[in-house]
């Protein structure tokens, strides 16, 4: 294996890992700030200018807190829960294309850790095992509220995965590829999937909210009913891991929404600017992060606007609301793409 290849992948891995951690850190601050602004408050502003050191203070506080473990907890699984959640949250960033490619010294370096030909399915697999951390942690706490949270998380995840996969399948049908890199590359310029798949987009966004356990779907941690849900018994950095992985999940979900529906690193008129290849890539990455920030903001905006679902409403919405829409969208898309393939619309262009 080429040594430069190894070093470049290593650098990319480290950069993406650190980036997701730092972004998750500052997402906590952004969440509190934005919540403040939505409620005519200021949000945290004491630690550093504009509260910029607040995440550091929060992290330090969590590290200093007492490590508590319930007496009858399953020791190994109790520790495994948050670790698994964190691991799974970080896993899916591997296949997201963070930008085009940089050409340095005649060699092309793609800004994607692993361009596997089943990238979409990989992300989907990672999402589907994401619930294990919550379930294990909730069960191992030996607390009925935690168990209730875990059970809720499991049923919610399974229910919304279906509609989510259906909307992804529609994307796969139109693009004809399971590789995320290919899907993003096909949305070159302004050919974003959101224009051809508006229903799929809405379904995907709603499911993304449910999969990340964010309001209005935060029933697994629902404070008013379940105290803290699956992390009721957790303290110190184990709790920190749970809270932190929620923000990483949010970041990754935003990146997925941006990549699948909003063209990823593509931006309008990218061919007409007359810039060099590397310059386009750098601007593209910046554009991608702007899109991610927008969707992150959307996540928070929704959270501080909508009240929480009731549990039966959640289930009814998932199975009787989203799933039929997703399936209908899939059938319509299949029908139309079949017509296009058979030149049915040729009379329009005549």
């Amino acid at each position: 294996m080429d040594m430069t290849f190894v070093i470049y992948k290593l650098i990319l891995c480290v950069v993406i890992l650190l980036l997701s951690l730092v972004i998750a850190m500052y997402a906590t601050l952004a969440e509190r700030k934005i919540a403040g602004f939505f409620q005519d408050r200021l949000g945290p502003n004491r630690a550093g200018t504009f509260g910029l050191l607040q995440p550091v203070a929060d992290g330090l506080k969590l590290f200093m807190k007492e490590e508590f473990m319930p007496a009858n907890a399953d020791k190994i699984l109790y520790i495994m829960g948050p670790s698994l959640t964190m691991l799974v949250a970080l896993l899916s960033s591997a296949v997201i294309p963070w930008g085009g490619s940089l050409i340095i010294a005649g060699k092309e370096f793609a800004l994607q850790v692993a361009d596997i030909n089943i990238g979409v399915l990989y992300v989907f697999a990672v999402i589907s095992i994401g619930v294990y951390g919550i379930m294990i942690g909730g069960w191992a706490s030996n607390n009925k509220y935690a168990l209730m949270g875990a059970v809720r998380a499991a049923s919610q995840m399974i229910s919304y995965e279906l509609a989510m996969s259906m909307s992804i399948v529609t994307i796969v049908m139109t693009t004809g590829s399971l590789s995320l890199n290919e899907i993003v590359a096909q949305q070159h310029g302004m050919n974003w999937n959101v224009f051809t798949q508006p229903i799929g987009f809405v379904v995907f966004v709603i499911c993304a909210f449910a999969e990340t356990n964010r309001a209005p779907f935060d029933l697994p941690e629902c404070e008013t009913e379940l105290i803290g849900g699956y992390h009721t018994e957790y303290s110190s950095m184990k709790l920190g891991f749970y809270l932190f992985s929620e923000y990483i999940n949010m970041f990754i979900s935003s990146a997925m929404i941006a990549s699948l529906y909003f063209g990823g690193y593509n931006f309008p008129f990218m061919d007409d600017l007359g810039l060099s290849h590397n310059m386009i890539t750098i601007i593209g990455t910046v554009v991608l992060f702007a899109k991610i920030s927008f969707f992150g903001f959307l996540f928070m905006w929704i959270r501080w606007t909508l009240p929480r679902f009731r549990y039966d409403q959640l289930m009814r919405f998932g199975w009787k609301g989203l799933l039929p829409w997703a399936i209908a969208n899939m059938i319509i898309t299949g029908f139309i793409s079949l017509l296009i393939k058979n030149n049915f619309f040729a009379f329009l262009t005549k």
């Binding site: 403040g36 602004f37 939505f38 408050r41 200021l42």
Partner: peptide, 9 residues
């Protein structure tokens, strides 16, 4: 909520 976002704190 967005109208509150830009309101004076």
């Amino acid at each position: 909520t967005m109208s509150h976002f830009f309101r004076k704190e």
